[in-house]
Design a protein around this nucleic acid. Structure first.
Lengths: 338, 338
DNA sequence: CTGAAAGCGCTTACAG
DNA sequence: CTGAAAGCGCTTACAG
């Protein structure tokens, strides 16, 4: 497969390389008939502009970096998928860069990716988007950066999030509406800022309903199904057993569900269980778990839009884009009347 | 952050850019003291070679493409993780390219990635590594390509696989050793070539043990927990119920497990269940599911090695690398004596 | 509306 | 062991 360059196209179309460049990049000021001719030749020759040459001369790489803590998690997978879709639509490519903040050379790694690849933008996923040291590296580099579900609104180019607090509140209101009063809550890990927001929502709804939260009913997990099982044991062994358990994510909800099964406590008849995420585990279970759909892929796609959109790029630096995407309560079989 | 170029380093070190280039690329023929000096300046200036300039002049991109059907699956995630680790070790970067063979323009998309990014190599995951039309595109492009777990050994630069057949055989032997004779088998989808290999292994072990396979006990799923549940219903409703069910992957095994629970059939006392993959779902369940550990990340990392290793690269074209990586039976609580 | 010149930051091929 | 020259394939800045 001989490689077709812009010169080949120019020669065959009888124009200058610059004109081909104009057509390729959709610039104005090309006579319609010339444009059409060039487009025809491009198609005939199946010409693909060399991304490196383009990047070198334009100092744009058409490359976005996705910086992520644990690329193996289900969360990461969904975020990446959304980012990939967004990139493809806009002819960008995505480079996934795992960031291990416990590695001694993490900073050099990150700097290296930014500098060597001349990234056009970065998307940073939770929980590392809440790490000050990492964010400082991005800030210093001047790279447009969008944070996914960060705790606050740090000085990044943009943020994309959902309302974790409100969603947890709605879920709690739903449980209260079902008649539950004694509700167990499994907190997520402190390292994820969403954990605190979800707990706030839970407490807010309980307070609004005038229900006192028994602190014995609040336990902290690490988002794994294993801690869900362990903490489920603890909650179900309480002298006065909760009639519902709200776990801060689906994996932990699944753990609670399994524990209930082990003890022969039928769900939802004797215990309601709900989670957060709409992860595959919430659907793999039986009964399927009531949860909150988190628009992970949509958030990532929106992050790409923010980074790539020329309007945004122009004003980057002086203006920031902050998006809040809608969530959805997914009611399934694991919850029922108290 | 002003950008440091090779000229800056050369000027500061008092040598030519070419000498800096030699040091950066670890070439021979540089006086030790000059090498050290240059390295010192590189470190001082935190110089990062521009990957695009390097690619443009050397016609190597230091970029590997991972072509994958469904980037959201757990399989994809593990493969990608292994590839990422491999790339990082060798200062390569990974570009993930989803391939949707049902999209009308898939071929153009794939060609575009190869041509525009000037990839140095491609890793193709199952099941698309078994698609002749796709493999033809790679073959035509001349791009070094390594296939992960393909059905046969097509004319690619290399393949990396595990012995699905042997693993399924060992699992079946384990069940037979436990005293099971009537064993249900949930096949995987035909689109995945591993499905057939796993079934072969199952049948081979059964035949070797002189046990006749009742074809009513063989049912086909699609690797989802939902079909696992449905087919579990079917197998457990059989006039003569199997004492063990071997599902071709963990998600389906989980579905079978859930169905057994629904019907109050205790596992492993009255039914043994096992899967394949060592997926998160096998550990999230209770009891945890006996399964086969598939070295997914290791296979991907090996694929990177094959593509990047200079020795291999030299002889690419006339010689192929075919690796078989070891699997492992993971015995857990879901299986027991008949 | 179009093109000739120069340059992006490296490496290749060559000379010494 | 080291460097000067040329070029990779585009785009920028400029001229017309």
């Amino acid at each position: 497969m001989s490689i077709v360059t812009i010169k080949d196209v120019a020669a065959k179309a009888g124009v200058s390389p610059k004109t081909v460049s104009r057509v390729i990049n959709g610039e104005a000021y090309v006579r319609p008939e010339v444009r059409e001719l060039v487009q025809k030749v491009v198609a005939e020759l199946d010409y693909r502009p060399n991304a490196f040459a383009r990047s070198l001369s334009s100092s744009r790489s058409y490359l976005l970096g996705l910086f992520i803590d644990d690329p193996v998690s289900g969360y990461a997978t969904d975020v990446q998928h959304g980012a990939l879709i967004g990139c493809r639509q806009r002819s960008y490519h995505l480079v996934v860069e795992p960031v291990d903040l416990t590695a001694p050379d993490w900073e050099s790694q990150v700097r290296g990716s930014i500098a060597a690849l001349r990234l056009d933008g970065a998307i940073v996923a939770p929980p590392i988007c809440d790490e000050a040291a990492l964010m400082a590296v991005f800030a210093e580099s001047g790279l447009p950066t969008v944070l996914v579900a960060p705790s606050s609104a740090p000085p990044a180019s943009g943020t994309v999030r959902m309302d974790d607090r409100r969603a947890a509140q709605e879920m709690t209101e739903y449980l209260l509406g079902l008649g539950h009063r004694r509700i167990g809550f499994v907190q997520g890990p402190i390292s994820h800022s969403a954990s605190a927001r979800r707990e706030e929502g839970f407490r807010k709804a309980m307070a609004a309903a005038g229900v006192t939260v028994d602190e014995d009913c609040i336990v902290r997990g690490d988002f794994s199904s294993r801690t869900g099982m362990e903490l489920g044991e603890r909650l179900l062994a309480l002298p006065e057993r909760p009639t519902a358990i709200f776990a801060s994510n689906d994996d932990m909800a699944l753990g609670v569900l399994i524990t209930a099964m082990k003890h022969g406590i039928s769900v939802p008849e004797r215990l309601s269980v709900c989670g957060f995420d709409d992860a595959p585990s919430s659907r793999a279970a039986w009964p399927q778990v009531t949860t909150v759909r988190q628009p992970k892929a949509e958030m990532a796609a929106a992050a790409v839009d923010i980074l790539v959109n020329p309007q945004f790029r122009q004003k980057a630096g002086d203006e920031h884009a902050h998006l809040m995407l809608p969530h959805e309560l997914i009611l399934r079989g694991s919850t029922g009347p108290a």
